[in-house]
Design a protein around this nucleic acid. Structure first.
Lengths: 244, 244
DNA sequence: TCCAAAGCAAGAGCAGTGCTCTCTTTTTAG
DNA sequence: CTAAAAAGAGAGCACTGCTCTTGCTTTGGA
């Protein structure tokens, strides 16, 4: 630990490494946002940073490793958006909080389409995400679990239907992710979670072109129905109201 | 039209062009299935076919044009699967027919993951699908509309809830795609359509890894709930039964 | 304080890509 | 029979990810 002339606890070299690594990720993220993952080029990143391409391999052993770093950042970014929405709507009742978080996910996706495609679209061919991504990837899901848990401990939940054949699987899911929640709820929650991304993905990837025009409103209604399917009830429909 | 020595109505050259075009698409589809769209290489296709890469440009002006051809084929392929399932389950009631078609879509996706990614995953960056793809792309949707229409003309539909704010949009959707169906049904149908692909995509792209294990059953139940949300009712739950 | 070791940047080079251009051969159509 | 159109072949350009070698700088222990 001989800090001869360095002003930080770590040596100047370690500090530079952190800065260069961050600069590489920033520039890579810029290119990702501009042209998408497939056109992200190590050489172009290096060029933009004024370094030679081979130097970049000191920081990321391959293009896939750089992509993995961006994937983790993207998961954390959308996770933060979801958590922020949850906190901003802490006092509106579970149903509306659910909708707010869904809209946060959609808003993030519209603002970062290529990053959304990177994490929820088709995975880069030949690339399989390492387990490193799992914690970041589960943040959004945890937000939804938290909302449902609050409702369960508070106003209560309507129990979604669950076929007998699916009960073992639902019980395993509940045991794995939220032992305090009913299996019926957990199964419905995971289905709703996946369906949310169907709605977002279709809008983002152009399937709603000439199909859905008032997308904001359509989305809001659809995710409201999703909340309904999970068993969340919200004021204006009345408690446990089912049919329209 | 002087067929000097040709045995077909078109000249030998026109016939050869069709065959070569088909051979290119076949080999490209092979590579697509093996390694995904991003690794589909014109040069590799040409190499495999024993021709030089520049010759291939006589048939497809660019890589994107070849991809477009594969996209249309993929849409038609999944559309055919959906239509076949609909026809195979013509006499089981709309609810079960809906589930059968959903399972056909899922089965096709699992059998052709890279083709699924090509059409429903993130679009190839910088590439925007031309209108040529629209007819093929709408086949699956038409199948679902047909199922709901049959139910509407037959046993009847439960009307899903529809907020007043969304009514104009729902009426436009109905007018555009199925004027004989109630707007409430049309809006719910389009939402269910998108949500189906959320379920399929999450399974295919690994989001269900360590989350959903009994995927077959989970999917079957989830799309059953989707049918329910559209207003389709099926025998074992009893007519128009809502809560579980 | 000095010196070996480790970290890092730079450049050349390999194999691959999409695509264009030119040149030659083959087939078609008048 | 001949001019035009279509097709194949090859070279070449600019780009990619990645590796290897060559020097230079910082680091950490003796």
């Amino acid at each position: 630990m001989s800090t001869a002339h360095g002003s930080t606890s770590q040596g100047a070299r370690a500090r530079a490494r952190i800065e260069v690594t961050a600069a590489i990720k920033d520039e890579a993220r810029r290119q990702l946002a501009a042209d998408g993952a497939a056109k992200l080029s190590l050489r172009a990143v290096a060029r933009e940073l004024g370094m030679v391409s081979s130097a970049l391999y000191r920081y990321f052993p391959s293009r896939d490793d750089l992509l993995t770093a961006l994937i983790i950042d993207a998961y954390n970014s959308v996770g933060e958006s979801a958590e922020a929405a949850r906190d901003d709507f802490a006092d509106v009742g579970p149903g509306h909080r659910w909708i707010a978080v869904c809209e946060a996910v959609r808003g993030w996706a519209l603002a970062h389409p290529h990053e959304y495609a990177l994490i929820y679209g088709s995975p880069v061919p030949g690339y399989s995400a390492p387990d490193t991504t799992i914690p970041a990837a589960s943040r959004v899901g945890q937000v939804f679990i938290g909302i449902v848990r609050d409702a369960h401990k508070g106003l209560g939940l309507a129990k979604p239907p669950l076929p007998a054949q699916l009960r073992p699987e639902a019980e395993r899911m509940a045991a794995d992710f939220a032992p305090d929640l009913p299996p019926e709820t957990m199964a419905a929650l995971i289905a709703a979670w996946a369906q949310l991304y169907g709605l977002v993905g279709f809008e983002l990837f152009g399937q709603f072109h000439r199909v859905v025009e008032d997308r904001e409103r359509f989305f809001r209604h659809a995710v409201g129905q999703l909340a309904h399917g999970v068993g969340l009830v919200y004021p204006q429909t009345g408690p446990a109201a089912e049919g329209g």
